[in-house]
Simulated scan of single mutants.
Amino acid sequence: MEALISIDYTNDFVATDGNLTTGEFGQAIETEMVRLTNQFIDEGNYVVFAIDCHDSQDKYHPENKLFPSHNLVGTSGRDLYKGLNDVYQNNKDKETVYWIDKRHYSAFSGTDLDIRLRERNIRTVHLVGVCTDICVLHTAIDAYNLGYNIVIHEKAVQSFDQIGHNWALGHLKNTLGATVV
């Protein structure tokens, strides 16, 4: 069994009117995000939705100094974007589909992701979502440090701009040894 970790593909990060949107870059990967997620679910693999979760009252969170409010609890900005939301809603009750609220860039930081993957003897993680040079990258760094094999699906990751995206893909491949497909 392998795991697909779907990172932050929400309205706030992808929709045109999202609070911290990747816009057309993020929207361009929707079809591949949906296809891969359905494939992993159909094959019985573990699918994790690792979704940024912020509280508007949390004045101590370091991202408050860096970015506008985004993915706030109880807002539609935290909903998965379009077709991926449909996939999640249709499969959320399966034991192979798991939602993680994350507070930091990495899906491993402060969550039970590592424990859940190890319980299932998962050694390879496939990363998709946004942003290639922020949350995808930080999740990959933690996965590397924890000894996982990392696969990045190039057509299912994106960022705010191509410079950051391309730099991150190179770093993921050349520094972390990730397989970029």
Rank of each mutant, 00 (worst) to 15 (best):
E95T: 12
D93T: 12
E63I: 05
R118V: 12
K65N: 14
K92N: 09
V97P: 04
R123G: 05
H104A: 15
E63G: 07
P68A: 08
S69P: 14
D114Q: 07
K94L: 15
T75D: 10
G74H: 14
P68I: 10
S109C: 10
F108I: 02
D112K: 04
R118K: 15
D112V: 07
H70W: 13
R120F: 09
N91F: 03
G110R: 09
H104I: 06
R120G: 06
L117I: 07
D114M: 04
N64P: 02
Y105W: 09
L127C: 04
N121W: 01
F108P: 07
V97D: 05
D112R: 11
K102M: 05
D79G: 00
N91T: 04
H70N: 07
N71E: 11
L80N: 05
D112P: 02
K82Q: 09
G83K: 09
Y81T: 00
I122K: 02
D93G: 10
V97Q: 09
G83T: 08
Y88H: 13
K65I: 07
I115L: 13
F108A: 07
K82M: 02
I122H: 03
F108K: 04
V125L: 10
L66R: 12
D93H: 13
Q89R: 07
Y88C: 01
V73M: 14
Y105M: 11
L117M: 08
V87W: 03
L72V: 15
K65L: 12
G74M: 14
G110A: 13
